[in-house]
Design a protein around this nucleic acid. Structure first.
Lengths: 252, 252
DNA sequence: AAGTGGTCTAGACCACAAC
DNA sequence: TTGTGGTCTAGACCACTTG
């Protein structure tokens, strides 16, 4: 069973998905012009607002450019963009998107009791049992990502078995076992050298780089409960995040 | 003359600005509930769509949470968030937002001829003259950010003088001297140790850290011309980026 | 003047939560 | 059932670009 993240089904996203396919499919010479919004609306039999919602998203993701009075164009850079910082997908996909073969190994899976920091961030009492899951991801056999997830045991009726852990991401296990759907996360970005990384993970010894990009994240569910506390380490020689940032107008 | 980035003036942004002020102004107990959208629409005398556009933005920025069927709530974390990765404001503001006193020194300002990489990224012929501007920003007297901007000279009628460079950001100089308005940028994220940073900047010697966060960016104007090629280095001990990422629904 | 994107409205209907 | 956010429509008018 293949499990993939999918966007909510609505008209805008359908239009968006179609346009992505269309754009990726064509040779995308520099700045190909897309049809006017009114025409697209007619062709897709949806309102212009719906078309515009789809285009808004595509613009934020950097796939298209819109120039007032001129039109909507395919962003020539769009096809070069490999890994986006934005939604935070599955790590193996991230590695594949970066052009490498992906696999992972589970490094640790333990049941621990929460200390001060874990308690504070997950909003659970001191000493609450939680699972710690550490995975090491490889890009073409090279260590590229280390992820450490911490989830309170109380979300699970029974311990996850290793088959599940090897098959599914923690997000999907949580959804199926606990009905928890992760709606958003909050990350803090830091860089560190391997000496500092060693405080978090013994995988620091395996990294083939001198410094790593580190995300400290908290994942919240549909009721805004902090469910997963995660720490992620990236070797940016392999995982090079890209981001397109649309700026607002500047005024004196 | 104080020059600040401002958002485009429209109804949504006015509502948004009002709500930001409102939220920041109140004590923001955990999860204070905001009025229903219909009510806000009535109070602001705008349509619900307009309210929703404002709330969409605030949600993406992590200031509020929306729970279907329940309501809209102030995000308790919102007030902790200091520096957002998103729009990319002025560096001194970034430093102030991080809780430090900000100042900068100009390290280099030179006219150079483009080499292969600069030519390719700025889409200019080899050997085209460009300005290189390197600034070192301090957080409480500690080196925190190094920025290196490269702009083709052809955008300027005359050399910027040092008064301008010390007063205004490169964005504002470009706008006033060349009518260029930066609409978006594209960045690539990397970490490096100081030895690697030294290839880019002699400021590496001054950094009080072992590794830095590095953004390689290209800034595009309203006509999608690449105008500024910039490289930025951050000491993440001082500049700790935060980001709230709203996830889409997952489906099997 | 014609074409195109940018903003806004009023109203409708749906989906989820709580009583 | 009521209240709330989520989606969608049809139409209007504005702002920018081009001829």
């Amino acid at each position: 069973m293949e499990i993939l993240p999918m966007e909510k089904v609505n008209l805008s996203n359908s239009v968006k998905a179609y346009l992505i396919k269309y754009i990726r499919g064509m040779d995308a010479k520099l700045g190909t012009k897309l049809p006017p919004e009114n025409e697209m609306a007619k062709n897709f039999s949806v309102s212009r607002v719906t078309i515009r919602r789809a285009l808004d998203d595509l613009e934020k993701e950097g796939l298209i450019l819109r120039i007032h009075g001129k039109g909507t164009f395919v962003n020539p850079d769009a096809l070069q963009i490999k890994t986006s910082l934005l939604p935070g997908g599955e790590f193996r996909q991230l590695i594949r998107d970066s052009g490498y073969e992906a696999k992972f190994e589970i490094q640790r899976f333990e049941k621990l009791l929460s200390d001060g920091e874990v308690s504070r961030k997950l909003e659970i009492p001191l000493g609450t049992p939680y699972y710690l899951l550490e995975k090491l991801y490889f890009a073409d056999q090279h260590p590229a990502i280390v992820s450490i997830d911490r989830v309170p045991c109380e979300y699970f009726n029974q311990d996850p078995d290793s088959a599940e852990l090897n098959e599914l991401s923690i997000f999907h296990i949580l959804k199926h076992k606990a009905g928890c759907i992760i709606k958003r996360d909050k990350i803090e970005i830091e860089t560190m050298d391997l000496a500092k990384m060693k405080h978090y993970s013994s995988c620091s010894e395996k990294m083939e780089c001198s410094s790593v990009l580190c995300f400290h994240g908290i994942n919240y569910d549909q009721n805004n409960r902090p469910v997963i506390l995660d720490t992620e380490f990236y070797n940016t020689d392999y995982i090079r995040f890209n981001m397109i940032r649309v700026k607002d107008v500047y005024k004196d």
